[in-house]
Design a protein around this nucleic acid. Sequence first.
DNA 1: TAGATTGTTAATCGATTAACAATC
DNA 2: TAGATTGTTAATCGATTAACAATC
Lengths: 213, 213
Amino acid sequence: MGVPQLSRRVLQRLMRYYRFLVEVTAKRPVRTITSGEIAEALEIDATQVRKDLGAIGLIGLGRVGFDVCEICRAIRTTLGFDQRHEAVLIGAGHLGLALLNYPGFATFGLDIVAAFDVDRRKLGRTIGSCRIRSVDTLGSFIRQRRVPLAMITTPAEVAQQVTDLCVANGIKAIWNFSPTQLTVPKRVLVYHEHISLGLSVLAYHMNGRVSPA
Amino acid sequence: MGVPQLSRRVLQRLMRYYRFLVEVTAKRPVRTITSGEIAEALEIDATQVRKDLGAIGLIGLGRVGFDVCEICRAIRTTLGFDQRHEAVLIGAGHLGLALLNYPGFATFGLDIVAAFDVDRRKLGRTIGSCRIRSVDTLGSFIRQRRVPLAMITTPAEVAQQVTDLCVANGIKAIWNFSPTQLTVPKRVLVYHEHISLGLSVLAYHMNGRVSPA
DNA sequence: TAGATTGTTAATCGATTAACAATC
DNA sequence: TAGATTGTTAATCGATTAACAATC
């Protein structure tokens, strides 16, 4: 693998470039774009943009900039959006349903293939393209289908328990939407959507304090 | 205001300390805690913890550590959780409902006082403690009640339009859950919940690449 | 007291930004 | 060609970590 490992920060910037370019080209067809244009729109330094694009093998043209399609393709390949990734979702509450109904994931290769819940009344219902199953069958489902990702939208109290079950059955990564810290072996990646972190910044601001940067 | 301005990063760490301490004390009563204990649990350097706590005026005791109650109180005060902050929520889809039903916000002083939607069939329903109203009344509601925060859970296509309406009526801050960038005057703070950023890190990892840090 | 923990200063590290020759 | 934009190296900046005397 000639590609050097990319830090979270770089990955997230690449995602922002990608999202921006998709949005721009949706409005009007654009063949090329300069690092300066991306930088200005995203409030990032242009040098940073060139470095990031360089890091995934893109080469710009003097006086012209970068080919938009090439950038998009390179980002898709690097981040793996061109691969199909299966996921299960655990906890079919409102948040779970919101994620199940979100059509955008498909664009990124993410395919939620099943949802699980403990509530018997919910079992069998079909949301989006997947059926809600009993959490009793979660372990075997993950193991047999080798599902790499679990999205956890359960209450905080059961999140660790559910996580352990996923880990025991070979999950590779966990997308944690519950407001609690999870403990996992270090081969498993946990990405925690810290919804409360936003609140800290917002509350501070509403108190009349302005946070720099 | 003797308190220096705190960066986003510091604010977010304070939130993490707070959440951790609440969780710990819920399990068993703890009077004091050392920077090292917090650091270990949150995988942060202990010096960092001491600096952050020092920044909000806390003083530890040699050989003992910090008083847990004092830390919590100081964080609540600094971040403004002891103040009541009103918010409106715009877009009563699944995500909107999830947020309306989330009981945790009250702990942080956040009170969602109204929800708005364009769908006439949803109007009048009551979720949690607030009624779903027509988006036609959004502007006057914000203006008359001087609501400082808007949580946007609409589709991306209308997010900017809704934002403009909020801004025109004096909103102070926007919590953006829609997957689109918003433009606002700089007196208004936008906190963007970038759900897709997590996906970039997760997809990269599932592709077999391990992202450092 | 002895020893663990603090607050603070200094050193390190990494990320961001500036500068500029090379390029189209 | 002239001039805008690149890729890359060097400088800056800020955040993190290490070191250690002061403290309880």
